[in-house]
Design a protein around this nucleic acid. Structure first.
Length: 422
RNA sequence: GGAGAGAUGCCGGAGUGGUCGAACGGGCCUGACUUGAAAUCAGGUAGCUCGCUCCGCGGGCUCGGGGGUUCGAAUCCCUCUCUCUCCGCCA
């Protein structure tokens, strides 16, 4: 959610910047500023009326002590009249504030100046790529066939037990999941992130705080009886950890990480996109989150990007990183890198991580601030997948399969799996 | 799930209808004293918001959240959330 002050002081700039996301903010901004002006006027006259009533109340108390009953009664009458006005103004103010809020939450986060223009993924910019070759398909089995054949994943029974997109991982398949999670968490800890295990269900305030609500509610599983959402990513509970708090400057940067299953309804997905592990309703992921001072958030973004890249590289997978263009970015992000791995059998790139700086978009929703001298200021929040498992597994199986059908385990995972081949 | 108790500022803890944004203690900050420190003394120490003659001043709101009663609520009523104790259930 954009800061009101920024909107007031630089509305033209905000509109121009949002055009990069393909969003026409003009009418919305104009309307918001009008409500803001109205709100302030209402606030002012309401405050004045309240001030009067406060003074009257004091006078009543004082008169009553003196025994000046008639005087007190006349004040009371005055106060009662005033109160009716106040109630009217309060209602008007509430209404205006609600309308303003409605508009503000519909405004996407303006992208950072370094974000390229563009309408779709085709216009994303490749910023780095590692040296591993983009293997040809040749005789390689796609991961869904290989995984069934080697009894690593059981898609069919998952579909029976729950539904499509909820696979069982069996035997070494399950162990591979555990190995990857442990590897990712261990590395994150070495990189300075505090490990947390977060709740996997969250309330509506939390879902609003990181921007899942209101616009992405169809993406989340919901438990109506308890009004809780299954998390689509650990970003949600982790970033909300300090929601509503004022942090001391010395506490920053906050660096936390956590493993969680991720639940996504993925309504409307179909075809080759959802084949095998390409898109699931439940998957495992390790997430990293940083909460930092605004001045250093873009340094933090680069640090996180490099860290995520190093993880993929050590799994010996062909990898590239793209900087998302304005049109391909999410509503909440100011700048996003996607890290992708090469799927030889599918002959295409699979996104395994998204690393984003949200600047104050989330912190303003969450009212997460830090003390800067005498004042307080909103922090910047960032997060990144480090990493999401299914597509890593897909690339791993397809990349490291041997002609004899076995799958070579990348060196860094061998200590976890205690074997060199699956 | 049932019964009861509670939620106050950075922390502890008073306050049961008026001058309470909140006694008192602790912590922290500033100043004085001191060669320095300790001790002592004095002062200060929340957030949000509106306005102005805007390194300051004034107004409003906030005593877990929301609503109500009242001229006036931290104090009374309703409701929600959370914590604690006992019972039940369970990993």
């Amino acid at each position: 959610m954009i800061e009101l002050a920024r909107l007031r002081e630089a509305s033209e700039e905000v509109i121009a910047t949002l055009a990069k996301k393909g969003f026409d903010a003009g009418p919305l901004v104009e309307q918001a500023l009008a409500y803001d002006a109205e709100r302030r006027q209402l606030q002012k006259s309401l405050d004045e009326a309240r001030s009067q009533i406060n003074q009257l109340s004091k006078a009543i108390g004082e008169a009553a002590r003196r025994g000046a009953t008639a005087e007190a009664e006349s004040y009371k009458a005055e106060s009662t009249t005033l109160k009716a006005t106040i109630q009217q103004q309060e209602a008007a103010l509430r209404e205006t504030e609600a309308k303003l809020h409605e508009l503000l939450i519909r405004l996407p986060n303006p992208p950072h100046p370094s974000v390229p223009g563009g309408r779709s993924a085709a216009e994303n910019v490749v910023v780095s790529q590692n040296a591993y070759p983009l293997l040809p398909a040749d005789g390689r089995l796609p991961h869904w066939e290989l995984a069934e054949k080697r009894h690593l994943i059981d898609f069919e029974r998952g579909a029976k037990v729950t539904g499509s997109g909820f696979p069982f991982y069996t035997g070494d398949g399950a162990k591979l999941q555990r190995a990857l999670i442990a590897f990712f968490l261990d590395e994150a800890e070495k990189a300075g992130y505090l490990e947390m295990e977060a709740p996997f269900l969250v309330n509506t305030d939390t879902a609003f705080g990181t921007g899942q609500l209101p616009d992405k509610d169809a993406q989340m599983y919901y438990v109506p009886l308890d009004e809780l959402y299954l998390i689509p990513t650990a970003e949600v509970p982790l970033t909300n950890y300090f929601r509503g708090e004022i942090l001391e400057e010395a506490q920053l940067p906050v660096k936390i990480c956590g493993y969680s299953p991720c639940f996504r309804r993925e309504a409307g997905s179909y075809g080759k996109d959802v084949r095998g592990l390409n898109r699931l309703h439940q998957f495992d992921k390790v997430e990293i989150v940083q909460i930092v001072r605004p001045e250093v958030s873009y340094e933090a973004l680069e640090e996180m990007r490099l860290y995520v890249e190093s993880l993929v590289d050590r799994l010996e997978l062909a990898r590239r990183t793209v900087l998302l263009c304005g049109g391909d970015m999410s509503f909440a992000s100011a700048k996003t890198y996607d890290v992708e791995v090469w799927s030889p059998a599918q002959q295409r790139w699979l996104e395994v991580s998204s690393v984003s700086n949200f600047e104050t978009f989330q912190s303003n929703r969450m009212k997460l601030r830090y003390r800067r001298g005498k004042a307080t200021d909103l922090v910047h929040t960032l997060n990144g997948s480090a990493l999401a498992l299914p597509r890593i597994v897909a690339a791993l199986l397809e990349t490291h399969q041997l002609p004899d059908g076995r799958i070579r385990v990348p060196e860094v995972l061998q200590p976890y799996l205690k074997k060199a081949y699956l």
